[in-house]
Computed example of a mutant assay.
Amino acid sequence: MADQELAPVFQLQRMYLKDLSLEQPNSPQILLEQQQPQVDIQLAMGAEGIADGVYEVAVTATVTTQLGDRTLFLVEAKQAGIFELRNLPDDQIQGILGVVCPQMIYPYLRAIVSDVCTRAGFPPILLAEVNFQAMYEAQLQQAAGNGEAPSVN
């Protein structure tokens, strides 16, 4: 029985859409434009403890499309998951929260962004694959350069 209590645990409790926003400030006139818009995509991720051994991990995509100085549309979507991690070393927990959890969440975020763009009357925006391992390692290097302890937030 004691062995079961000390066994490592990594489990997805729940996946959910935490926030979604669509803005079309220049519609309907901008919908008549035939030019190719400029697309800017920003990704962010974060993790925080919400209970003992339970964490919320979120990945946010902000997609801005513009024609010149006019905004065609802006989509911001935040997909999140609640994960249980127990009986693991702290360095492994940080790696799981910074790499594995976002990799599980991201496909759902990609689908949401594409779907919202299509439902708004625009061609779908297909978010590229992301190397969360490289992002996590860059965060670690940045934290080390600043003399901070590694953190996923």
Rank of each mutant, 00 (worst) to 15 (best):
P107T: 00
V152T: 05
D52T: 04
V9H: 10
G95W: 06
V39S: 08
A2E: 12
L97F: 09
R14E: 15
A144R: 04
L12Q: 09
V100M: 03
E129K: 03
L67S: 00
P37L: 03
G145L: 13
G121D: 06
L85G: 01
I105Q: 01
G49P: 13
L31H: 09
F132P: 00
E148N: 13
V152R: 03
C117E: 14
I41N: 05
S151L: 12
M104D: 11
M135Y: 13
A44R: 13
L6Q: 14
P8Q: 14
P89T: 13
S114R: 10
L22G: 12
E5W: 15
G46Q: 09
G49M: 15
L74Q: 15
Y108D: 11
K18S: 05
F122G: 06
L140Y: 05
T65R: 11
G147P: 00
G81L: 07
R70Q: 05
D52P: 00
P28E: 05
L31A: 09
V9W: 13
Q79K: 01
V99F: 00
R110Y: 00
T65M: 08
T62R: 14
A80D: 10
L67H: 01
L6G: 11
P150N: 05
G121A: 07
D3T: 04
D69V: 07
L85S: 01
R86E: 07
Y55F: 10
Q141K: 06
L126G: 12
R14S: 12
E148K: 14
S114H: 08
G68Y: 02
V100H: 05
A51M: 03
R86K: 14
D90G: 08
P28V: 04
E5G: 14
L43I: 12
C117N: 14
Q13N: 12
V116P: 11
L127G: 01
V75F: 07
Q92G: 06
Q13T: 11
G49N: 14
Q24L: 10
V116M: 08
L127D: 01
V39L: 09
E137F: 06
A80P: 07
R86C: 09
T71H: 12
G49Y: 10
